[in-house]
């Protein structure tokens, strides 16, 4: 990863979820870290303009 573009908290019921928008220089990824289950989920990807 080359850039942490934005990190913000959100909630899933009573669970705190930290959202990380990161980039590897060509694609963007939205990763979510569940603070209760301590699991990471890749939620979406946006590709760089061709």
């Amino acid at each position: 990863m080359t850039e942490l573009a934005l990190r913000h908290p959100t909630e899933a019921g009573r669970r705190m979820v930290h959202v990380f928008h990161v980039s590897d220089g060509s694609n963007g990824y939205r990763l979510e870290f569940d603070a209760e289950t301590l699991t990471w989920t890749l939620v979406s990807v946006i590709a760089e303009q061709p």
Partner: peptide, 13 residues
């Protein structure tokens, strides 16, 4: 702008 902040691939587009 918030979306462009979060998604660098969307900046300047």
């Amino acid at each position: 702008s918030a979306e462009q902040q979060a998604w660098p691939a969307l900046r300047n587009r």
